[in-house]
Amino acid sequence: MRYLWRFTGLTDKWFYKLIKDGLFPKPIKLGRSSRWRQSEVEDWLLQRIADSRSG
């Protein structure tokens, strides 16, 4: 989760809300830990940037 916070500046609460709303990739569960593929997070961020710049 620290990676997500550093990479985006968003909090863990925000990410879990986005996941619940279907707006962010679901985590990979490893025991009690949640992990994300870096490529999925980067794709999500690039899409957000593209969406914000299109009319």
Score class of each variant (00 low, 15 high):
residue 10 L to V: 10
residue 7 F to Y: 13
residue 44 W to R: 01
residue 10 L to I: 12
residue 38 Q to F: 04
residue 9 G to R: 06
residue 35 R to F: 14
residue 35 R to W: 12
residue 2 R to G: 12
residue 49 I to Y: 08
residue 36 W to G: 05
residue 9 G to T: 08
residue 48 R to P: 00
residue 32 R to Y: 06
residue 54 S to N: 06
residue 28 I to P: 02
residue 18 L to M: 13
residue 51 D to M: 08
residue 15 F to D: 00
residue 21 D to C: 07
residue 53 R to P: 00
residue 40 E to H: 08
residue 54 S to P: 00
residue 28 I to G: 00
residue 4 L to S: 01
residue 32 R to G: 14
residue 45 L to G: 01
residue 3 Y to H: 09
residue 21 D to V: 06
residue 44 W to L: 02
residue 49 I to D: 04
residue 33 S to W: 07
residue 20 K to I: 01
residue 44 W to S: 03
residue 6 R to H: 10
residue 31 G to F: 06
residue 30 L to C: 05
residue 6 R to A: 10
residue 28 I to F: 08
residue 28 I to S: 09
residue 1 M to N: 02
residue 33 S to F: 09
residue 52 S to K: 09
residue 33 S to G: 00
residue 18 L to H: 09
residue 6 R to Y: 05
residue 20 K to Y: 08
residue 42 E to C: 02
residue 46 L to W: 10
residue 10 L to K: 14
residue 4 L to H: 02
residue 19 I to R: 01
residue 45 L to P: 01
residue 7 F to R: 15
residue 6 R to D: 13
residue 39 S to F: 04
residue 47 Q to W: 04
residue 49 I to S: 04
residue 25 P to R: 05
residue 10 L to D: 05
residue 36 W to K: 07
residue 20 K to R: 15
residue 2 R to I: 06
residue 5 W to F: 06
residue 17 K to T: 14
residue 39 S to G: 03
residue 43 D to A: 14
residue 45 L to S: 06
residue 7 F to I: 08
residue 40 E to G: 00
residue 41 V to W: 03
residue 1 M to W: 00
residue 17 K to N: 11
residue 46 L to I: 09
residue 13 K to C: 01
residue 28 I to D: 06
residue 1 M to K: 05
residue 10 L to T: 03
residue 39 S to T: 13
